[in-house]
Design a protein around this nucleic acid. Structure first.
Length: 278
DNA sequence: CTTACGGCCTGTACGC
DNA sequence: TGCGTACAGGCCGTAA
């Protein structure tokens, strides 16, 4: 489900209810998600105060007073729902795996039918060195994303450009939707060999990645199927897709007479215009 | 070392 | 209606 814009939208929804708050009760309803919870998971969280809720790539990082960090990933189908004090509690469903109650009485429930998500804890002060985070590449909205930085990251890769954009070690936070959309904005073919992207093409790609992610965040992310923001509102960037899931429709680029095609790369669907993406 | 592929798990949409 | 198949926003381990 969620790529960087959706995770950032969730972060913005959760932050006011987590930052500065003490976690008074933590319940887990199974032994883990994609990976098991650490043995001391509940104990290490209970009674702790969250100092800051940060996002790195598609990960949410809740930093605790103990200097440990709750590392969270939504996988494909992960979702948070908030229930304010005094509001009727939603009935617990079979895919509600974690519940966290804050001292303000807010209940934060994590639901994830496919269980591809992750919740785990870092060692004190060592979140950035955690195995899940240490190999992540350029953070696209940090200012580190530039044409030369992309050129450097892509020059040794002998894969299709689309596959390289999905590799979190190169640019972190892009998923299937925004890879397709960024390549269309940049006018670059998803099939192009990664190492051929340099100079003006790399600069265009850096701009396209930044702009598509920024636009999507401004729209509250993309709501497909079951994705909703933390406050239950729906993002609407899906109405702005140029290529994703738009096979056989006309290319929206002005004066381009192409038609959007769907191909398979690395087992994933790629949507692009063969006319204006070279 | 790099790259390609299957698997993880469940839900949904679609064709017959 | 029921069943089988394909596919879904991600990532990892293994094989080549």
């Amino acid at each position: 489900m969620p790529e960087l814009p959706e995770v950032e939208t969730v972060r913005r929804g959760l932050a006011p209810h987590l930052e500065g708050q003490r976690l008074v009760r933590v319940q887990v309803r199974r032994a883990g998600l994609r990976i098991p919870f650490p043995p001391d998971f509940v104990q290490a969280l209970t009674g702790q105060r969250v100092t800051q809720l940060e996002r790195r790539a598609k990960y949410l990082l809740a930093h605790l007073e103990t200097q440990r960090t709750l590392i969270m990933h939504l996988g494909m189908s992960g979702r948070f729902t908030l229930t304010a004090p005094g509001r009727p509690m939603a009935e617990t469903g079979p895919h509600d795996h974690v519940q966290i109650d804050t001292e303000a009485g807010m209940r934060i429930a994590y639901t994830d039918p496919r269980r591809f998500g992750v919740m785990t804890l870092s060692d004190p002060g060592a979140a950035a060195q955690h195995k899940l985070l240490r190999d992540l590449g350029i953070e696209p909205l940090s200012g580190a994303l530039s044409g030369p930085a992309l050129t450097g990251a892509l020059k040794s890769r002998r894969t299709a450009l689309k596959a390289a954009l999905l590799d979190q070690r190169i640019v972190a936070g892009i998923g299937n939707i925004y890879a397709c959309e960024a390549l269309h904005r940049a006018g670059l073919s998803p099939r192009r060999l990664s190492c051929t992207v340099n100079g003006v093409r790399a600069a265009r790609l850096a701009d396209a990645i930044r702009s598509v992610l920024t636009d999507a965040i401004a729209a509250g992310g993309s709501s497909l199927r079951d994705y909703v923001g933390a406050d239950g509102t729906l993002g609407y960037f899906q109405y702005s897709f140029s290529v994703y899931d738009r096979a056989a429709t006309p290319c929206p680029k002005p004066r381009c007479k192409g038609t959007i095609e769907r191909i398979t790369q690395g087992g994933r669907s790629t949507f692009y215009c063969g006319r204006c993406q070279k």
